[in-house]
């Protein structure tokens, strides 16, 4: 009985193709919470790169990035966006915009982890070692805050 798919017996692993385990969900969620949507997307992109699936994830990462930038432009320039800021402020006070962008960042985290769910499950099931997320996490938080601040200053 021959193999139904002869490609199955072709080697798939070279040193460049061996997959690397993703950063933990904890590192991802904390980067998103404190660093904002840009940090969340950056961490998703880094995990996609580590898992060799950047081509697969690029469409949603680009859509999410465009969505976030459009949201910031809408808030800064469009009268409807400014009305939204005022409405949110009347309900949640001066931190309203922080809460909204944080919620957006957490939504991006949720999408990213759903996209990489199999990889996270397999990493835990197979007992693979994950890289430490401390240095990258701090870097992404600082970078995310700086980039968001610079973007808002630019738009104003």
């Amino acid at each position: 009985m021959a193999s139904t798919n002869p490609d199955l017996l072709q080697p798939s692993l070279t040193s460049a193709r061996v997959e690397r385990s993703p950063y933990s969900q904890q590192a991802h969620v904390l980067s998103a919470f404190f660093g904002g949507p840009l940090s969340a997307l950056a961490m998703s992109g880094i995990n996609a790169y580590r898992l060799r699936r950047i081509e697969k994830d690029a469409p949603w990462l680009i859509v999410a990035m465009v969505l976030y930038l459009s949201f910031e432009v809408w808030l800064a320039i469009d009268p409807g966006g400014q009305d939204f800021v005022r409405w949110a402020g009347s309900w949640a006070g001066s931190n309203a915009l922080t809460y909204v962008t944080r919620a957006l960042a957490l939504a991006f985290f949720a999408i990213g982890t759903v996209m990489h769910r199999r990889e996270h499950t397999a990493t835990d099931l197979m007992g693979l070692k994950r890289p430490s997320g401390w240095i990258l996490g701090f870097g992404l938080v600082a970078g995310g805050i700086l980039a968001t601040t610079a973007l808002r200053n630019l738009l104003q």
């Binding site: 009985m1 193999s3 139904t4 798919n5 199955l8 798939s12 692993l13 061996v18 997959e19 385990s21 898992l51 199999r118 990889e119 397999a122 990493t123 197979m126 693979l128």
Partner: peptide, 24 residues
């Protein structure tokens, strides 16, 4: 080989190999 592919996080090939093993 399916277990190896799972370890390498290559899921479609792992599934195809597991199916092939079951077929045999």
């Amino acid at each position: 080989y399916a277990r190896l592919m799972l370890r390498a996080l290559m899921f479609p090939k792992a599934r195809a190999l597991a199916l092939e093993a079951l077929r045999r």
